[in-house]
Computed example of a mutant assay.
Amino acid sequence: MIAATQLRAGNAGSARGAASLVAEAVATTKAVLAAHEAAEAAGEIVVRADSAFYSRTVIAACRRARVRFSITVRIDAEVRRAIATIPDDAWMEIQYPQPVWDDEQQRFISRAHIAEIAYTAFEGRRDETTARLIVRRVPDLNKTAVDAQGELFTVWRYHAAFTDSPFILVQAEAQHRGHAIIEQVFAALIDGPLAHLPSGRFNANNAWLACIAIAHNLTRAAGVLAGRPHATARAATIRRHLINIASRITRHARAITIHLPENWPWQHNWRRLFAIAHAPPA
């Protein structure tokens, strides 16, 4: 579900306005949980983001909202120095349930090593933050070579996340990797309503973006209510199966009858959705 949207003018980077976007998304999430009396049952709220959102303002916004954060860190010289202090025996091997495609190496990765170390971000500044630096490393086959003695040594590629997650290392690392699910949402929106942008007018695009979020959330809710096959289906599939359907409407006196296709494979899912959304007449 989409909790907040933000449209920026010009060629703006992802970090511009990120703190206010995070604050709005967290406030919406808390309001939804409170409305359903599920705030305590929901557990921890974790803001997961990629390296474009790694900034003092975003982390400060998470702290003000009293939520956890898990943000990808750019591997700069300072982070490399911190990674170099991790003992060799601190690395733990993990295996992915499903292989992950690595664009840089152009191959699937199924195994990696993870470790963690305490790290102070933005050190020396007013809002410096000390939390966990969770590091994942995979062999870089493009650079693995033979040293002067003829022995093969491994060159590692590192991915790091800065987090105050209370979960154990394996859980925290796996949860952070889950932030990539937003890319699936982007793909679904680009395949649908976002294809109509831009209009050339900022206010019109901003209103259209708000409508996109509403339509996306309603579509996802409809899929969940329709049943298990559509609960995890793509938005385009839900539109094709449950929304954009051929039907005929007839009126008799004050009664309205919808004639749906015969032998329609998704009729039971549609009827379940209709029964939940519209109670039968008295």
Rank of each mutant, 00 (worst) to 15 (best):
Q184N: 14
H216P: 06
D140F: 02
R234W: 05
A82I: 04
S51K: 12
A195Q: 08
A187M: 09
I190D: 14
M1G: 05
A204G: 11
I182D: 14
I2H: 00
V67P: 02
R132I: 00
A195N: 09
H241P: 02
E128A: 12
A188K: 05
L189E: 15
N217C: 10
H268F: 12
A148H: 13
L141D: 11
L273I: 00
S199Y: 08
Q105M: 06
L33Y: 05
D127Y: 08
V138S: 06
A235V: 14
R137F: 02
H176N: 02
Q149D: 15
I243N: 03
N206R: 15
A82Q: 07
P139Q: 04
T5M: 08
R177Q: 14
V138G: 02
R136K: 08
E262L: 12
L21M: 05
A215C: 10
G13I: 09
I214V: 12
T144N: 01
L189D: 14
M92I: 13
N217Q: 04
L189K: 10
A233P: 04
L225Y: 04
A235F: 03
I2K: 03
A35W: 07
Y119Q: 01
A52K: 07
S247R: 13
V155E: 07
G192I: 00
R271L: 14
N203A: 15
I168F: 09
L218T: 03
F274A: 15
P281V: 15
D127V: 05
N206L: 14
Y119I: 02
V146N: 08
A42G: 01
M1V: 05
N205A: 10
L189Y: 10
I212C: 15
G223L: 05
T163W: 02
A121I: 01
W266E: 05
N269Y: 10
D103C: 07
W264M: 08
I86Y: 07
T250H: 13
T57E: 15
L152P: 02
I83Q: 00
L197M: 13
A112Q: 05
R126Q: 12
I114H: 03
F162A: 06
N203C: 12
L225F: 04
A195G: 09
I168P: 11
H230Q: 13
R234G: 12
N244I: 09
V67Y: 03
R111D: 12
Y119G: 04
H259P: 04
A282K: 11
T232L: 13
G124R: 01
